[in-house]
């Protein structure tokens, strides 16, 4: 059933793969296909390296993140400070390493929340023909029209202390931020998934599955959802970037992590007024966000190729 246009360079291997035609379990099959997507594999390696650097970095690079050195403010990259320093003379490399933990975790976790909630709500709304669908769309419309800032202030005001009490200050803030960012970004995903569902559920192959007596759940999970994932994966990559940036906006409003925790978005924000004098300050966090988005996107592409039911490799 493979289409005539190649979706990825790895598709050139189709013929060979078919020639050998070994049988694998679905998981191994997917993994095999994923491995063939070269960019996806390279991206996965780069992302893993970034995660590793963030996790073990502090063991090797021992300058404390809040060490103020007025003798070395706004210095460009040098051996002492490979990423330069900010306006208080704090070392940007160690700040990037520390902030990266939070930015990556927030970006990824918020993306999963947004995609998970969005896909479920979109799928249910797309399958249901009665009031459940209308109700869920009403909920989506409601969330789309809520002004985010007052809502955030309210959520934080209502739940901050309770969460801090239960999960400690850092854990509580983390959960709050992930829920807030993810919870305010699922609506486009829901709308996209619903639109795909409306179209897919009338397609012949779903009709066929239905005729064969597939349960609604099976129709969704085995037949419709895999075909609706394209926009979801794009939304996912965009959401990672958006979540990292949104976190910086939150801490700017005093709603996120304390202001002395240098997340990537926060670094970029702090750097902006010094852009013409100290471009290095913005360059590194900007590049880190870019690299994260890029790698996650290619991994997403690889995943889609690997899970695509229409591809027989």
């Amino acid at each position: 059933m493979a289409g005539s246009t190649l979706a990825s360079p790895s598709a050139e291997a189709v013929a060979q793969a078919q020639a050998r035609a070994p049988t694998f379990s679905p998981t191994r099959e997917a993994w095999r296909r994923f491995r063939r997507h070269r960019l996806a594999v390279i991206s996965a390696i780069i992302l893993a390296l970034m995660v590793l650097a963030i996790l073990v970095g502090p063991l090797f690079w021992r300058i404390p993140i809040n060490h103020i050195d007025f003798a070395a403010t706004l210095q460009g990259p040098s051996w002492n400070h490979p990423f330069g320093t900010d306006d208080l003379g704090q070392d940007l490399l160690s700040r990037m390493i520390y902030g990266g933990r939070i930015s990556l975790a927030v970006g990824l976790a918020a993306m999963f929340v947004a995609i998970f909630v969005g896909t479920i709500i979109g799928a249910v709304a797309g399958m249901s023909r009665g009031w459940v669908g209308s109700g869920l769309m009403w909920l989506t419309d409601l969330f789309l029209s809520l002004p985010q800032l007052p809502l955030l202030l309210l959520v934080i005001y209502l739940f901050r202390d309770a969460l801090k009490g239960t999960f400690g200050p850092e854990g509580g803030t983390f959960i709050l931020i992930v829920i807030v960012i993810g919870g305010l970004r699922w609506m486009p995903v829901a709308r996209l998934v619903r639109a795909q569902f409306l179209s897919l559920r009338e397609k012949e192959f779903v009709e066929a599955a239905r005729a064969l007596g597939a349960s609604k759940f099976r129709q969704v999970v085995r037949h419709i959802l895999p075909n609706a994932l394209g926009p979801v994966i794009v939304a996912g990559t965009i959401d990672v970037a958006a979540a990292i940036i949104a976190e910086s906006t939150l801490s700017f409003l005093g709603l996120g992590f304390p202001p002395d925790i240098p997340t990537w978005g926060r670094l970029l924000f702090d750097a902006k007024d010094n852009l013409d004098f100290a471009p290095h300050w913005a360059l590194f966090p900007g590049a880190a966000i870019f690299l994260t988005v890029l790698t996650i996107n290619f991994i997403g592409d690889g995943l889609r190729d690997a899970l695509d039911p229409r591809r027989v490799l």
Partner: peptide
Amino acid sequence: INAPRQKNQAIVKQ
């Protein structure tokens, strides 16, 4: 929330 105040906080904290 005000950038100089947050820097001031950082200096005092250190």
